[in-house]
Design a protein around this nucleic acid. Structure first.
Lengths: 335, 335
DNA sequence: CATCTAATTGCCAACGATGGCAAATAATAT
DNA sequence: ATATTATTTGCCATCGTTGGCAATTAGATG
């Protein structure tokens, strides 16, 4: 690999002059500049980023740490969004999935630090709280889909309550009065928040909350669709069954579809469905295509990088920004 | 961030001694070593990777380039496999998704080169041929799910023929004689290979090939499940309909499921199904769970990194290794 | 033609770490 | 005590790049 020294030699100038050309500094005659440029082309020279960092202190590197996000299809869009935003500013992204192992997490952060990342994004699969103390004080850090226990780090999280409300109101708006909600049992912001949204929507429409219409799927979540199937089946066997069902996520909606069909009911004529997450592969492909609330993962990843790179202005603001991202409705054909 | 110089100063030794401690070199008394170690701890010092690279030439960085892999849920496991293998050897992975834009691809490769990656993995979403000329000569490169036009780069691809054969034989072994194959129409290794495998399996069982049983879904592939739905429906309306169906991928199997149910047939009692890809979220969640052929993406990603890091031994072998990875059968309940 | 200013170019010291070699110190033998 | 060897430590150049400052060259003016 050619170095600036070789370029200088070949062009018959000093390395200082080459450096001037590289960094668009003044005080180089056009003829010299052209000559240098052509040698650069000829040798296919590119400045060494590590050496450049040594002088400038700018590594151009960002760490993207995830607990198990990268393992899960639901969330890959976040990484793409981040990568794209990084690309726009000529930054490179280190991807590291820790599997939510604190040991691995620590080593990972150390590795990132070794490589002088300009900042770290930490993204979680499930919306949850994390400990501030895991993260170094001296590296700008942005949280995605999670927030620090003491709120001392900027974070970007989805509006669970708003999403739950929007899903429910979508059904209400279409005339449904009895609305089932298949939730999960975890005490986390997503199930908790969406339930609040569900209740808010009902109350907005003056409909009393009936807890017989809400069921909670227990962990483990492996057979999520199957558990939902059972749950929806019993919901439909009530004396006064729901005509609309809101599922905690799209995968569960898949199980709900099966249960509804099993009960010889049609979607959306007999039972309307709204999901959550907008996993394209599922929601757009099942029959009928699922109306769902989008978790704007791409935008969240993108925003994270942009906030990070905005540096002083945004990332360092006190108190740190807690971004709550709206979750839009994606209308398909299940309502 | 502390430097080696500060550590040396604080410990009352020269930087050379600190360097010796850091790199486990001999000729340091235990008491000195302990003292240095404690200062390192105290200052939370970690050697600067860029500076270290400058002397050693080892960046510890690997570029993971994808065309659109990272955009697609089908392929995410590949990245995780790669990242995990890199982690094992203390390497960091740059993830860059180019969206299959040659311009972006070139810039991406340049950026990786700037950062002195020790190698590049290039992975494609669909199994296909790529041009050798896009890639630099002077950086070890390994292809995943694709191969170079002149076979001059090591590559790792799935055994499409074997997978197609295995899928078909799974149905044959279960007594099915009329087996439908819903393929896609592209002239690429995957559809072409799986069709060959399908034919081989039939011939192994002495069953004549009937092209009325094979259909080809045309691009665009957006409504893939829906197109498959139509296709399977007509397959089932034949005078001598198939009792087993092999789908090009799991998503299409989703459409096939709908068609089979629509025809008032049961899976697997009336019609057995085999998919391809083993997309957990689909295959394990639909009802009944889908028996499918696994595309071992995790292993492919892992192997790519391992080959790269094995360096001289494997990566540089002439002619370059063309790894063909077997696709195992995942038995669930649809056969 | 000498002088002065402006425009261009080059020398060199950093950045943080490593490793060859020399120097200093300690341990042993004479 | 001195000489010899083994052990431990330190000085310094180096990696590729940038930027301050000095040096050179060209151009303009008296």
């Amino acid at each position: 690999m050619a170095t600036i020294k070789e370029v200088a030699q070949r062009a018959g100038v000093s390395i200082r002059t080459v450096s001037r050309v590289l960094n668009d500094h003044p005080h180089v005659t056009n003829v010299t500049r052209e000559r240098v440029l052509s040698v650069i082309e000829e040798l296919n020279f590119r400045p060494n980023a590590a050496a450049r960092y040594m002088r400038t202190g700018q590594s151009g590197l960002i760490g993207f740490l995830t607990d198990e996000v990268a393992q899960n299809v639901f969330s890959y869009d976040m990484i793409i969004g981040a990568q794209q935003a990084a690309w726009e500013q000529e930054k490179l992204l280190f991807l590291l999935n820790t599997g939510n192992d604190p040991q691995v997490e620590m080593r990972a952060i150390n590795m990132m630090r070794d490589h002088q990342v300009e900042g770290i994004i930490y993204a979680t699969l499930y919306h949850r709280e994390i400990k501030r103390s895991q993260f170094p004080e001296d590296i700008p850090t942005i949280l995605v889909n999670c927030f620090a226990d003491d709120r001392s780090l900027p974070s970007i999280v989805p509006d669970e309550i708003g999403g739950g409300r929007l899903a429910t109101e979508t059904l209400l708006k279409n005339g449904h009065q009895r609305i089932g909600f298949v939730n999960v049992a975890a005490k986390e912001p997503a199930p908790l928040g969406r339930l609040v949204g569900y209740q808010q929507a009902l109350s907005n429409y003056g409909i009393p909350f009936d807890d017989a219409l809400v069921c909670f799927i227990e962990e483990p979540f492996e057979g999520l669709a199957t558990s939902t199937y059972d749950c929806v089946l019993s919901l439909l066997q009530m004396s006064d069954p729901p005509t609309g069902i809101f599922c905690f996520n799209d995968l569960m909606a898949l199980g709900a579809y099966d249960a509804i069909r099993k009960s010889n009911l049609r979607i959306p004529e007999d039972v309307a469905m709204v999901g959550f997450d907008n996993v394209e592969m599922l929601a757009a492909q099942i029959h009928p295509p699922l109306t769902t609330i989008e978790l704007p993962l791409f935008e969240m990843g993108q925003l994270a990088i942009r906030m990070l790179l905005a540096g002083g202005e945004i990332a360092q603001r006190e108190p740190p920004i807690q971004h709550i991202i709206e979750c839009p409705l994606i209308v398909r054909r299940s309502v």
